[in-house]
Simulated scan of single mutants.
Amino acid sequence: MTLSRRQILKYGTFATAGATLFGTQSLLAPHSHAATTLTGVTYLPDSYKALTYGSNRFVEMLQESGGDALTVEFYDSGQLLKVDEQLPALRSRSIDFMFHTFSYITRSIPILGVTGLPGVVGELYRHPERLRQGSPLMELINEVLAEDNLYLLTSGGGILEPEYLWSTEKSPIRSLDEVRGKKIRIVGFEATQAFEPYNVGAARIPSSETYMALQRGTVDAGIFNISTIIGRSLQEQLKYCYKLPITGFSVAPFMLRDTWDNLDDDVRGVLQQAADWYDENFIEYCNNDIYPNEYWPQVEDAGIEIIEPTEEDLETFNAGVQDVWDHWKGEVGEEVGSRAIALALGEA
């Protein structure tokens, strides 16, 4: 039987026999050439113009600067691996790097949850420098990731504009009280926990299936970053945006720690140069350029009503997140969790 490239990767990801057959190197790494070959993936399609801006340029920089030292094979739009396949593929060495959304993998990599904690995201959004390369918070995150043989090259220079509550005309959410009893599409674990006291029906629906879920009434609302709204044309199914900052995330490049450490100096230098660019430009471009100048005008043109939360709603919501923080600190350890939150809030 002849296997496609995707099948080879998929089987290599989930079958231990692949590790025995191919050893510790990437399944696709050529053994007969001097150049290092790195295979990378993202599940995001090009319709996510803002989110793929950074990864596209990152890969271009590797290709432009790699010379004879580095060859890059990159697959976007889930061509090679679906969203839930990426992390297992990285860990099994079937791929060498991936761009991933933090909120999808905080259950597998709990330390990343600090970027999505309700009550913390607003501060991180207003102070992106706290997640820049070399910052104490980034150093702490990578110290914890190293224990799992993972390495975050860069957060992208902060987190994206927070995710808000978007709802349909039939089931409006214009205040915190109107959240109660609604069926809401939620991906991030931290956001799911934050809404448990409101008796919501939380549904973890992939972004690719959300348009139909809203259209059919499977869910009444969703917690979305504006990139998801525009990237999936969800403004066609929504009527209200309740701008309560609930959770947040970034999209960033990951490698295995030992893969990074064992790279030739020249190859590591090429990757670091691309990571430096990503750190300086990705979040800055999304939050301060394409979102205010292109995406939010499209939302307004679609007739979506934008509702700012009252001070009372903000205080009520933030007052209820301590249980979420405590649960998260229980996953990462009290000392690490307390330190990470303090760094994110600018208190350490």
Rank of each mutant, 00 (worst) to 15 (best):
P30I: 09
S108V: 01
K183H: 13
G158P: 04
L140G: 07
M98D: 14
H33M: 07
L80T: 04
E280C: 11
V83R: 14
G158S: 06
F317Q: 07
F254N: 02
S55L: 01
G188P: 09
T37P: 00
G333C: 11
I246Y: 03
S338Y: 03
Y198V: 01
E331P: 02
S171F: 15
A17P: 00
G67H: 05
G188Y: 12
A275V: 04
L70A: 10
Q193T: 04
G201F: 14
E294V: 13
D76L: 02
A194W: 12
R5G: 05
D266A: 15
L28K: 03
G201D: 14
Q79S: 14
P309F: 03
Q7R: 08
W296A: 00
V321I: 11
R257L: 04
G346F: 09
P197R: 00
A194K: 12
V83Q: 14
A319G: 15
I304H: 07
I8W: 06
P162R: 08
T259N: 03
G66D: 07
Y278R: 05
G181W: 09
D276E: 15
L140H: 09
M1A: 15
S4F: 04
C286H: 11
L124W: 01
S92W: 08
E305N: 10
T36A: 05
Q193F: 06
Q298V: 10
L160P: 00
L124H: 01
V114N: 07
R130S: 05
L27C: 00
D261V: 03
E85I: 10
G269R: 12
V179K: 00
E311Y: 08
D301C: 01
L137R: 09
E73M: 10
Y11V: 03
A35R: 00
E161N: 13
I223T: 08
W166L: 12
S92F: 08
N293T: 12
L3K: 14
V144T: 12
K239N: 07
H327E: 13
T42A: 02
P172H: 05
D258Q: 09
I229F: 01
D289L: 07
Y43N: 00
Q215E: 15
E308C: 03
E284W: 10
Q79W: 11
V121C: 08
V324R: 05
L150M: 06
Y211A: 13
R257S: 06
S167V: 10
S155P: 01
R339H: 10
W325M: 05
A319D: 14
H327V: 11
G157P: 02
E347G: 04
L112S: 04
Q79Y: 13
V336Q: 06
E64C: 00
I173K: 02
R93S: 15
L165Y: 10
Y125N: 08
F254P: 02
